[in-house]
């Protein structure tokens, strides 16, 4: 019981902290760092618009993660309230909740883009492709995770007597990643552009940033789903390595969101 209380306090505090920092202001320093990363210069008017966009996307991402952290601790809350009903809330999906909801937050944050204000709007006559903003190799990784995890799940169902919820959770999570990247990138190229007068590079940089976050979240889900499906197999000592693969998937999220592959594409797209 004491352990449950401790976990609740720690997880509650952690999720509150994530929630507050996610909703916090997007400071000038953060904005400068962002501009430096994408090598773009923005005037004062553009800075405010950019700040709003970046802050909204970040808020959705981190709030999703915070809510997911609370959801993952549901069995502990239930244990404290009514020990007999705790099992009702304990599902294999609980441990994925923070990542699933953070990915969902990432997608929603990018989908909720608003049309810039003003009666005069400009559009460039160049066709945008999602490949211009992110690495197609990572998108392929997400796509392949679904058939691979399904193959693992089929094998596990045949060879071991596991519940269907345990066996098929991995492919379901990988499928969520695949859906997130498909919906997100499709929307990304067709969402409203930057306000008239703002450098086209800034608009492209923002799309690239969104693409990196979307693909990063999807890679994490794909990796978590596939390794979960692999863990359902009787792997012996290899299971230990596969278990570590789950943390690798989360590290991949950070890596994809931070890497700057977009600079390569920018040469042929933004400068055209």
């Amino acid at each position: 019981m004491l352990g449950d209380w401790l976990s609740i306090v720690v997880l509650g505090g952690l999720s509150s902290l994530i929630f507050v920092s996610g909703l916090g202001p997007f400071t000038d320093r953060m904005l400068d760092r962002w501009c430096l990363r994408y090598d773009v210069a923005v005037d004062q008017h553009g800075r405010e618009w950019l700040r709003t966009q970046l802050r909204r996307a970040r808020a959705w991402r981190w709030c999703g993660f915070a809510v997911g952290t609370v959801v993952s601790a549901l069995p502990m809350y239930a244990n404290v309230i009514d020990r007999n009903r705790a099992a009702d809330f304990a599902t294999p999906a609980n441990r994925f909740a923070p990542w699933l909801l953070a990915a969902a937050g990432s997608v929603v944050g990018e989908l909720l883009s608003r049309r810039p204000p003003g009666g005069r709007r400009a559009a460039h006559l160049a066709t945008r492709h999602w490949r211009d903003y992110c690495s197609s190799r990572w998108v392929a990784v997400v796509g392949w995770s679904v058939p691979v995890s399904v193959a693992f799940a089929v094998q596990a169902t045949q060879s071991r007597d596991l519940g269907w919820r345990w066996s098929w959770l991995g492919p379901a999570v990988a499928l969520c990643g695949s859906a997130a990247v498909t919906v997100g990138l499709r929307h990304l190229v067709n969402r409203p552009g930057a306000p008239d007068g703002l450098d086209r590079l800034v608009d492209d940089a923002l799309r690239a940033d969104s693409a990196h976050h979307l693909v990063g979240a999807s890679v994490a889900l794909a990796g978590l789903g596939t390794s979960h499906a692999a863990l359902a197999l009787d792997l012996g000592w290899l299971g230990l390595l596969v278990g570590m693969g789950q943390w690798l998937a989360i590290a991949a999220w950070w890596y994809v969101a931070r890497q700057e592959t977009w600079n390569v594409a920018r040469v042929r797209w933004s400068r055209s």
Binding site: R115, R121, A122, A123, H124, L125, A126, T127, R128, V189, N190, R191, P192, G193
Partner: peptide, 25 residues
Amino acid sequence: AMIRSGELSPGEHLPPVRQLAADLG
């Protein structure tokens, strides 16, 4: 006007309707 002035050359693609509509609101 862009096509007539040669700014847009033959064989070039115009952006998809969906993209241009979103950009122009």
